[in-house]
Write a protein that binds this DNA or RNA. Structure first.
Lengths: 221, 221
DNA sequence: CTAATAGTGTCTATCAGACACTATTAG
DNA sequence: CTAATAGTGTCTGATAGACACTATTAG
């Protein structure tokens, strides 16, 4: 069926923008920092967020996966839409709207190639082209909301972890220190002890936990 | 500056989708119900959310304003982006992405024309074409989040109101009854007594309030 | 007066913040 | 032993839910 409006024009007669996706891939580094993946571009040269133009018939989520699989060797992502950036002059190459996305990846599943890709710590990202700094702001705010309620909902830690490791992750995400005892009591309902202990450190060995199956909120019941 | 990719193609050589906006305009009716504005279309005939295609150089927010000013006589909106609906087959007229929006309007600022526009109560919207039912779900969820913390943040009530009227509005938004005394105590920090009373009803006259200037959250300080 | 609604006092359970205490390890 | 970290007990203040009480009106 061909659509025609009041003036008899079909859908193809209307000017259309180019549609892009740009993704903030967030990870948690071994030195306890929240970091974002940047890629090197040539055209306006410099570091920026990985992105691509939407292909015909393709889903936004698929475009995100396609743009990241090559550049960062990441698969099985669950990208989340954040916001559409639509300022008319945001891209000097033409009329381009970008749908900003967030994806989280455990550090050991990242395979960055070094020349074309690098990690930047969240509080030390430089000035990026387009509105990519604003996209990172959006992404971090979204991640903070997710981490407020339950223990490591994105699975950035390995299978088993101590509560200290969990708290350091949550502090990196929140960008602020968290109460030691309150944090423990808030997270315990969502955790299951593995029975193992973490030895070799000074002090009493810490119990190892994994996330509870039901991905519980921090409540009593 | 003309952009060319590795194959020498410019931005215009890439296929592009049509970009639309669809808006859930929510209001609060005199009979204490949350309702959404629907418009009558001819092309696939039936009721649907008001929307339009994005014009060149136009902002999404501007397109929302343009599509609503005519059809519902509403101006000075502050539309909020909700989500991009991008399923390849969502529109049988072609490849159309829609950016769903939420706008709230006090009932007495609505000027619906009757033949082409009507209100539907939220829990009695019928089955709408495309993904317009999902858009309404998104919009109501967003409104609920906003109304959880502060008194009538969208200004759906008139200047002065009683706490009973405020609670009835919040119950319509939440879709569930709220505790009478708890609600009052939670909202009072964000309210200012006007000094007036609401008379003429049976029972003790209720004090009239307006929203506090600072749009305070429900806390003590 | 009665019926109805507005507004408040208060008890209980829960929870965050704060702090100190006990428990268990390395060295 | 000492130093350091893990884990817990407990007090305080704030708050939600529940319930009952007082206050003030219409009729």
């Amino acid at each position: 069926m061909v659509f025609r409006d009041a003036s008899g024009r079909t859908l193809e007669d209307y000017p259309r923008p180019s549609m892009a996706v740009d993704t903030a891939v967030l990870t948690y580094t071994p030195d306890a920092a929240l970091a974002v993946v940047l890629v090197q571009a040539t055209d306006p040269a410099g570091w920026r967020l990985p992105g691509t133009f939407l292909h015909p018939g393709e889903t936004l989520a698929d475009a995100v996966q396609r743009s990241l699989a090559a550049k960062a060797g990441i698969t099985d992502l669950v990208p989340a839409q954040l916001h559409v950036f639509d300022a008319p002059g945001r891209d000097d190459r033409g009329w381009v709207l970008s749908v900003a996305h967030l994806a989280t990846v455990p550090f050991d599943r990242l395979h960055l190639d070094g020349q074309l890709t690098r990690l930047a710590t969240i509080d030390a990202v430089g000035s990026l082209p387009y509105d990519h700094n604003a996209i990172i702001e959006f992404a971090v705010a979204e991640l903070r909301a997710r981490y407020a309620a339950s223990p490591d909902p994105e699975g950035l830690l390995p299978e088993a972890f101590t509560i200290l490791e969990l708290r350091q992750l949550h502090e990196a995400v929140a960008g602020a220190p968290l109460q030691r005892d309150t944090f423990r009591r808030a997270m315990l309902p969502g955790l299951v002890a593995t029975g193992g202990l973490q030895r070799g450190q000074l002090g009493k060995p810490a119990e190892l936990y994994r996330r509870a199956a039901g991905r519980r909120e921090a409540t009593t019941d």
